[in-house]
Simulated assay, not measured.
Amino acid sequence: MKVLGLGDNVIDRYTHTGIGYPGGNALNFSVYARLLSAEAAYLGVFGDDRAAEHIRRVLAARGVDISRCLVAAGENGHASLTIEQGERRFLGSNAGGIRQKIAMDFALEDMSWLGQFTLVHTSAYSYADALLPALGMLPGRLSYDFSDDFEIERALPLCRWLDYGFFSCADRSLGETREVLAAARHAGCRLPIATRGAEGALLFDGSRWFSQAPEMITPVDTLGAGDAFITAFLLAHAAGDTLAESLRRGAGFAARICMVEGAFGEGMIY
C-alpha cells in the first residue's frame, strides 16, 4: 500500500529538556505508516535551517519519500511544549514558519503521481484546504484531521470531499461529540471519527455508532498518540479490515507510540 502525508511538518521543542523532535500531523502520518510497513511519501515545505535539515535527514533514513518537497529560505515550523505526568502541553508555535508564505498549489502539479496513492492524509494545519476539491477527485481515499480547535461551521463545508474526517473532542461531552459526527456525516464525510482522550474513540457510519476504548498504559509521552491512532486505523480500514478491527488497531498503535519520547523519537538539541 502506498500512502501520502501532505502538509505540516515541525520540530516539537521540549522546553524542559532543550530537545526538539520531528513532528506535525501529516509528517507523523507518513512516518507511522512506514513503521506499519506501508510505502510512504511526505509532501510539504521545509525551511532551510538546521531543524529542517534534521527532519529531512530523519525521513530519508526511515525510507519516507520526500523527493517532491520544497525547500525555501526561512525558518522551519516549530512548536514549543512540555510534558506533565506523561501528558503533552503545548505552549506556542511559529504557525508553520516559512510554510505560511509558500502556497501548497505545487502539490497538484503532477496529478498522475498523486493518483498512485491508496490514501492521502492532510490536516487543518497544512494550509491545504483549497486543494481538497482536487484531492477529493483522486482515485485514492482522502483523510483530514480537523484537530481540537476546529469551528464546526468552517469544518462542515470541507466534509463533502472527505472519505475520513477526524475530530479531537476530548473537551466535549459525548452528546456534543455525537452532534459533531452526525453533522459531518450529513455534510458528506463518509466516515467521521472523534478521538476523546481517555474516553477513547467514536465513529459514525451513517447508521451505526462504533466506540473504542484506549489501551490502559502509563504513558511516557502522549505526543503523537492521536496521529498514531489515525494512521493505524486508516491503514487497517484501507486494507479491508472491519471498522471495529480498524478502531482496535488504531488504539493499539496509539498506546505503542505513547511509550516513545516525542512523536517518534529522533531528538536534536535546539
Rank of each mutant, 00 (worst) to 15 (best):
A124V: 13
A155I: 03
V31A: 00
A60R: 03
A26D: 04
A26Y: 11
E75A: 08
A124F: 02
E84M: 13
E109Y: 12
F146R: 05
Q100P: 09
H78R: 15
A26R: 07
L142V: 00
A61I: 10
A128W: 03
S80N: 15
T118E: 08
C159T: 09
E151Y: 00
L91W: 05
R57N: 02
W113A: 06
R68L: 08
E87C: 06
S80Q: 15
E84H: 14
L70V: 14
L81E: 12
E109D: 04
Q85A: 12
A51S: 13
L108T: 13
R68F: 10
L36Q: 10
L81M: 12
S37T: 15
A51R: 14
C159V: 13
S37I: 15
I102P: 03
H54D: 01
R160K: 07
R99W: 07
D148V: 08
G92P: 07
A61K: 13
G115I: 05
H54T: 10
L135G: 07
M111I: 15
R56C: 00
S126Y: 01
D48Q: 10
P139F: 01
W113C: 03
R34E: 05
L114A: 08
D48W: 01
A95S: 14
H121P: 11
Q100M: 04
L158V: 05
A128E: 14
Y127E: 14
I152E: 09
E87Q: 10
S80F: 15
D148E: 11
G96H: 00
P139R: 09
A60F: 13
